[in-house]
Amino acid sequence: GPMASDKRPRTAFTAEQLQRLKAEFQTNRYLTEQRRQSLAQELGLNESQIKIWFQNKRAK
């Protein structure tokens, strides 16, 4: 629909990254900035991508 703007492409996470994020989520529903930074480095992701993933996951 018209609401779907092309400005922010959805990140396609790899299965491996998703597995890691899910495991982290089961341990911590809320990430500290430090955890998020190390996860971002570990997974080669953007911190904001991880932050948003957690927000979306909590919203469900």
Score class of each variant (00 low, 15 high):
R58K: 04
I50N: 00
R20C: 05
I52Y: 10
A23D: 11
L39I: 06
Q34Y: 09
Q34D: 13
R8S: 15
I52P: 01
T14Q: 03
P9E: 10
F13A: 02
E16G: 07
L43P: 00
L39F: 03
N56P: 02
F54I: 02
P9V: 08
N28T: 05
W53D: 01
L31T: 03
L18Q: 07
A12H: 09
I50A: 00
S38T: 10
R20L: 06
A12G: 09
Y30H: 11
T27E: 14
Q34H: 06
R10W: 08
P9Q: 06
R58N: 10
Q49M: 11
R35N: 07
F25K: 02
R36H: 04
N56E: 13
N28R: 05
K7N: 15
R8W: 15
Q49W: 09
R58C: 08
L43S: 02
I50T: 01
R8C: 15
D6P: 04
N28P: 01
L31I: 07
A59G: 08
S38Y: 08
R58H: 07
E47G: 05
Q49G: 03
I52N: 11
R20P: 00
E47V: 10
L18Y: 07
F13I: 07
T32D: 13
K7L: 14
R29W: 07
L43R: 00
T14H: 03
T11Y: 11
E42N: 04
A40R: 01
K57N: 09
F54C: 02
T32F: 02
N46V: 07
T14N: 06
R8Q: 15
K60H: 11
E24P: 00
A59P: 04
M3I: 15
A40C: 05
Q26V: 08
I50L: 06
A59N: 11
K22P: 00
E16V: 07
E33A: 13
K22H: 14
T11S: 07
S5F: 00
G44R: 06
G44E: 05
S38D: 12
Y30E: 08
N28C: 10
N28E: 04
E47N: 04
F13Y: 07
L45T: 04
K57T: 13
Q37C: 06
G1W: 04
F13H: 03
L43E: 00
K60W: 03
Q26N: 13
L39M: 04
S5H: 03
T27K: 10
E42T: 05
L45N: 00
F25C: 03
T14S: 06
Q55A: 14
Q19C: 09
R20Y: 05
R20S: 05
P2Y: 02
T11N: 14
E42I: 05
Q41T: 09
K51D: 13
R36D: 02
L31M: 05
L31R: 01
A23L: 10
E42K: 03
S48L: 12
T32Q: 04
A4D: 15
P2A: 15
A15Y: 09
L39E: 00
W53V: 02
K57L: 08
K7S: 14
A12R: 11
A4H: 14
Q19S: 10
L45F: 02
L45A: 04
R8T: 15
T27D: 12
R20F: 04
S5L: 01
K51R: 10
Q37M: 08
G44H: 05
E42A: 06
F54Q: 01
I50C: 01
Q37S: 10
L39Y: 00
L21G: 00
A15Q: 12
Q17T: 05
R58Q: 09
R35W: 04
I52F: 08
N28F: 03
K57D: 03
A59H: 12
F54P: 01
Q17V: 06
F54Y: 05
T11K: 11
R35F: 05
S38L: 10
L21T: 00
A23F: 08
Q34L: 09
E47F: 03
K7I: 13
R35C: 05
P9K: 07
L43Q: 00
D6L: 01
A12Y: 11
Q41K: 13
L21R: 00
L31H: 02
Q19W: 06
K51T: 14
Q41F: 08
L21K: 00
F54S: 00
A15R: 08
E47S: 06
S48R: 08
K51E: 15
N56K: 09
G44S: 07
